[in-house]
Every structure is written in structure tokens, then in C-alpha cells.
Design a protein around this nucleic acid. Structure first.
Length: 192
DNA sequence: CATGGGATTGACT
DNA sequence: GTCAATCCCATGC
């Protein structure tokens, strides 16, 4: 538990940066996090902005827990809850570099290149088989887990968030510099 | 109880 | 580049 607080208990921007390079695992599939975004109740892009509701109660819970929700009625999104209990904040996992169970991911996602298996928040949940039922799961216990990756410092690029309509100017998106596995489709737009 | 929005993806022109 | 698909839930009457 204290380990979870160490990793997830700080402010969400720090947590989002710390999660780059960590490994997400679910069953036989696993991948290295290469892209994250921070969300906090103090800014309008966050679901928790409106306050504590049945939908967002997980975000207000203890840190180190999975918050899974459905977007556009089609895709599941995986977040790691951050900050202390009572604060609505979390880190959206946007992209992974496939590590294990790649064949299984291909079965779930169809025949696509390795770079396309997990290069987006909706894609990675499909590839790993993560569903709404995993909302509230302790990321230190499972079935969905996040474990620290390489101890060596990684070069992390900071940019603005993607695909949102509010507070788009906040530089709360973090990517592993030079990675081929980030969702760069919209990254070109952010550069304009 | 009815309505509209949402942190996306993929298919089509 | 443009557009539809489709579930959960917050909000409003």
C-alpha cells in the first residue's frame, strides 16, 4: 500500500511522468507505457470536474486503482487513479509498446502492425482485454497490474493533450521521446 | 423521464 | 478530410 502511495500519491503530473516506462499487464498480455495524460478535478477536461458522481467515484478513491470508463459508447479507456482519497485525479494511459502476448493481441485486434496494436487508449484496452468490469481494480494486485519498468531515467517529451474540447492548452501529455508506438496521428496537429 | 455530450477509432470519399 | 457508430451517465424539465 505504501508502495502504491509512493508511485501514485504525488500530483498527477508527476505520476503521469513516472508511469512512462512502467509495464501494464493483464493475463498473458503486457506492454510498456509510452504515452500518458494527466487529469485533475481542478480543470474542466477531467470527468471529476463536475464533482463526485457514481460514474467518477473511482477517480476520487485511493491512488493506485484502475479507473475504466467507456468513451463514445465504443471504446474503453484505462486510467490510473492518482492523488489522495477525496481528490478526483487520474492518469490516462494512451499508448503502449507491446511486450508480451503479441499474438493474442493480434487475435483481439485483427491483423495489424505491431505499432498499431496499442497506439491509442481505445486500442490498448482492446489488445489487453481490459473492460469496464476492471474499474476499481487495484493496480498492485490485479487482474490488471502496473509494475515499475527500467530504473534508468527516460527521455520524456511534454506536449498538450489530445482529443479533448476543454483546457486543451494544458501541457499535461507525456510521451517517451522517439517512440514509434505513441498515437502520433494527432501529434502533428498539436505541433501547429 | 428525455436528451446531449464524451479523454476515439475506423471506414469511406 | 469527413463522418458515423454506440454506451454510460449528468443534467434539465
Amino acid at each position: 500500500m505504501s508502495a502504491a502511495v509512493d508511485l501514485y500519491g504525488g500530483d498527477v503530473c508527476t505520476v503521469a511522468r513516472a508511469l512512462i516506462g512502467c509495464v501494464v499487464r493483464h493475463g498473458e498480455t503486457a506492454g510498456v507505457i509510452v504515452e500518458t495524460e494527466a487529469y485533475h478535478q481542478s480543470e474542466p477536461a477531467c470527468h471529476a470536474y463536475v464533482g463526485l458522481t457514481p460514474r467518477t467515484q473511482t477517480l476520487f478513491g485511493p491512488a493506485g486503482v484502475a479507473y475504466v470508463y467507456r468513451s463514445y459508447g465504443v471504446h474503453a479507456m484505462l486510467n490510473a487513479v492518482g492523488e489522495e482519497e477525496g481528490i478526483g485525479a487520474g492518469v490516462l494511459i494512451r499508448a503502449l509498446e507491446p511486450l508480451e502476448g503479441i499474438e493474442l493481441m493480434r487475435e483481439r485486434r485483427g491483423r495489424v502492425r505491431v505499432e498499431e496494436l496499442c497506439s491509442g487508449p481505445g486500442k490498448l484496452t482492446q489488445a489487453l482485454g481490459i473492460e469496464l468490469a476492471h474499474d476499481g481494480c487495484d493496480l498492485g494486485i490485479g487482474p490488471v497490474t502496473i509494475t515499475p519498468g527500467a530504473a534508468e531515467p527516460l527521455e520524456i517529451a511534454t506536449s498538450t493533450r489530445i482529443g479533448i474540447t476543454r483546457a486543451v492548452e494544458l501541457p499535461w501529455r507525456y510521451t517517451l521521446a522517439g517512440s514509434r508506438f505513441v498515437s502520433r496521428r494527432v501529434a502533428a496537429l498539436a505541433a501547429v
